[in-house]
Design a protein around this nucleic acid. Structure first.
Length: 500
RNA sequence: GUAAAGGUAACUCAACCGGCAGAGUACCGGUCUUUUAAACCGGGAGUUGUGGGUUCAAAUCCCUCCCUUUACACCA
């Protein structure tokens, strides 16, 4: 391994610390009783109770003043300045602890614990006057040092997306605000969980390794089970398993499902991603729209204290109710073509007129989907339910109660992207079998994403599934909206990357 | 997959028409007991992504390959 000059220096410092009889990786716990952000928020001049404070964190900057130093300690709550004076640390003749250890052998990034009292410097900075310090962990690699001046100008920012994502631990240490995005994401998930639990929903786990990758149209990752000597698939959705649980008598089940799809990667797609799915017995998609509105309104309020959320240069309103429009009405509105009841050949012609590429593998459903995503999707900035899709593109969805050829389905579009997909679940086992068989035809025509037939799922439906409403909500995409991030990589700690 | 822009020190970036590879931060050595992008003096640090070519001379021009970013396309 080729070490840089700075890495060599740090290893030499490590040895020098050991030569002083100090353990650079000590075992005993360091009891912490104070945090940077809390001290800065609560300290007032002359206030009591700010003595014998113990803080721990990384040294992020040192300003050496000779026989005293100012340094900055970064703990999990933020940064605070601390002050170290030689005569405090080394009251006797032996000054090595200050002159050698503190001034020369400690580096930016090292973890230390300090004990001392709070005061305010002449320039007004709230500072911990450290009477002692303890090395807690020696850091062997230099951190990129990001500096911000009084006007807020940032210098030497650590900004290369590749480096930031590959070394997220460095990103989190060095770039203020990154942790906040992830804390918000977790708050969002907690908020959703609370919403569901309060309504009596049951959180469940279902298989990630599946014999038949069902519940969505997508190309799966394939793996192999050695003992059984069979191919296995990483799940592309958990829908069919949750519905089996509804068959089994659970009225409301949900799962935050990590799904895997073997497709392209870009700023809105990662090979593994999270969808919340839930299924509720005796409900339909109208009920689901109302529930979705309530859920998202609560999430916005929990995270932002308001139903308006700033996303890029737009303000999105999560105030219920949301707009609703049928997909064919939307297409008619934005293209002028009325596709209702149109056959495949006529629709091919429409696609040609709209300059949308079609091929032989595409049925009516796929073409409607293409036209909508090409011409309409990006127009829906505010949360909007797009409803009543053609039956051909919805093989798991119940036929519409009054509109022939359509199904009771909606997708929720926000900021031009699909965030949720929901429907009144198809529970007619004979119809479901026929729909699967139509998928097989598509697969034979070359559609790699068409569904497999899941015979066990059909068997379950034959035992009877009550009328059920189900939904999948893209958690990563929702997190992007709620944290105002424009790429999925910024809401995943470790987005997928090519190996180094 | 397509297109554009890129890859130079640990970080952020320069280097004009091909002419000794630089700056700030960081690092190393000094001075300074309330500084704050601390300051001041001094110093070291590079296989310019890879491989080839043109040339007296290549970070720079040409070709190959690798990688990245951004946009588009596919998908959620």
């Amino acid at each position: 391994m080729q070490l840089s000059e700075q890495e060599i220096v740090r290893r030499q410092n490590l040895q020098a610390i050991r030569d002083l009889g100090i353990d650079p990786y000590p075992a005993p716990q360091f009891e912490v009783n104070a945090f940077a952000a809390d001290i800065k928020a609560r300290y007032e001049d002359g206030a009591e109770g700010f003595e014998n404070l113990r803080l721990a964190g990384r040294i992020m900057m040192v300003r050496d003043m000779g026989k005293a130093c100012f340094a900055e300690l970064q703990d999990s709550t933020g940064r605070i300045q601390f002050y170290v004076r030689r005569d405090d640390i080394c009251p006797g003749e032996d000054k090595r602890l200050f002159d050698e250890l503190f001034k020369k052998l400690l580096d930016i990034g090292d973890f230390v614990g300090i004990e001392g009292f709070v005061f305010r410097t002449r320039t007004g900075e709230i500072t911990v006057h450290a009477k002692s310090f303890t090395l807690l962990c020696k850091s062997l690699r230099p951190l990129p040092i990001v500096k911000t001046d009084a006007e807020g100008n940032v210098y030497d920012a650590f900004v290369d997306p590749e480096l930031r994502h590959r070394m997220r631990y460095v990103d989190l240490v060095v770039n203020a605000g990154i942790r906040e995005t992830f804390i918000q994401r977790t708050k969002m998930v907690n908020s959703i969980r609370e919403f569901l639990n309060n309504r009596g929903a049951l959180e469940v786990d279902t298989p990630v390794l599946q014999n038949i990758p069902g519940g969505a149209t997508a190309r799966p990752f394939i793996t192999h089970h050695n003992a059984l000597d069979i191919p296995m698939y990483l799940r592309i959705a958990n829908e069919l398993y949750l519905k089996r649980l509804v068959v089994g008598g659970f009225d409301w089940v949900y799962e935050f499902s990590r799904n895997f799809r073997n497709e392209g990667m870009d700023r809105t797609h990662n090979p593994e991603f999270t969808i919340l799915e839930f299924y509720v017995a005796y409900k339909d998609y109208n009920w689901m729209m109302e529930t979705t509105e309530q859920l998202l309104e609560k999430v916005a309020l929990d995270l932002h204290g308001a139903t308006d959320v700033q996303v890029g240069d737009k303000v999105l309103s999560f105030k219920a109710p949301f707009q609703r429009i049928g997909i064919l009405d939307a297409i008619k509105e934005h293209t002028g073509f009325d596709l209702y009841g149109m056959d495949e050949a006529a629709m091919r012609d429409v696609c040609r007129q709209l300059h949308i590429e079609v091929d032989n593998t595409m049925g009516v459903g796929k073409m409607v989907d293409e036209i909508f995503s090409e011409k309409c999707e990006k127009l829906y900035t505010q949360p909007t339910f797009i409803t009543d899709y053609p039956v051909e593109m919805s093989p798991l969805t119940k036929r519409h109660r009054s509109k022939p050829g359509l199904v009771e389905r909606f997708e929720l579009m926000i900021n031009g992207k699909e965030v949720a997909n929901a429907y009144s679940e198809l529970n007619d086992p004979i119809d479901q079998r026929e729909r699967f068989e139509e998928q097989v035809v598509l697969k034979d025509r070359g559609d790699e994403e068409a569904m497999f037939i899941d015979h066990d799922f059909l068997r379950a439906l034959e035992f009877g599934m009550p009328p059920t409403a189900g939904i999948g909500i893209g958690i990563d995409r929702l997190a992007m909206l709620m944290t105002n991030q424009s790429t999925i990589q910024e809401v995943l700690f470790f987005p997928q990357m090519r190996p180094e």
